[in-house]
């Protein structure tokens, strides 16, 4: 996706957000609705301005040579983000003790961060460390899932 399309998408999202909240504000008593309505208008104006700005820059850029950006590993970022999403989704039903070391080992292995035995070692020790810190010491809750 080029820069202009990205800005267009961002403008569209903020625009929709503002409109949805603006419409919803009519369910509210006036005192609660005044500020959000004013803010919604500002967001609408600014998101359009942002798109206009991007459009203007795109025109200008076409005339100049822009230096190429260093490429990023989009696929890897996507897979890693998906791993995080999976971790977040599974930690409650399956529990901290199962999902955390699994996530760490898979992530470290996928990213080729270390050799496997080191990944396992890091994963296990970090899982235990967090447990000791949050649960044993601070008496804080963590999702136990199957282990409750």
């Amino acid at each position: 996706m080029n820069n202009l399309a990205k800005h267009g998408l961002a403008s569209a999202i903020t625009l929709i957000l503002a409109i949805v909240l603006y419409v919803d504000s009519f369910n509210l008593p006036p005192a609660a609705a005044n500020l959000p309505r004013a803010l919604a208008w500002i967001i609408i104006v600014l998101s359009l301005a942002m798109f206009a700005e991007a459009l203007y820059k795109e025109r200008k850029k076409a005339q100049e040579n822009q230096e190429p950006k260093e490429p990023i590993l989009v696929f890897r970022v996507f897979v890693f983000a998906a791993m995080i999403a999976l971790y977040v989704a599974l930690i409650k039903p399956l529990g901290y003790f199962l999902v955390t070391p699994l996530f760490l080992i898979t992530a470290l292995a996928y990213l080729e961060a270390t050799r496997l035995w080191k990944a396992v070692l890091i994963a296990l020790s970090f899982t235990v460390f967090c447990y000791l810190l949050f649960v044993m010491f601070l008496h804080l809750p963590i999702p136990m899932g199957l282990f409750s």
Binding site: F80, I84, A85, Y87, V88, I91, K92, Y96, T100, F103, L104, A107, L108, L111, E112, A113, T114, I122, F126, C130, F134, L138, L140, P141, I142, P143
Partner: peptide
């Protein structure tokens, strides 16, 4: 960096869960 990245994720997930003892907060955080 590749070791730091998943470790940050875990600290954030556990940290945001413990604040209100709520998994919804973790979803919001993500």
């Amino acid at each position: 960096n590749k070791v730091i990245a998943p470790v940050i994720v875990i600290l954030c997930v556990i940290g945001s869960f413990t604040i209100n003892n709520s998994i919804v907060d973790v979803f919001v955080m993500f």
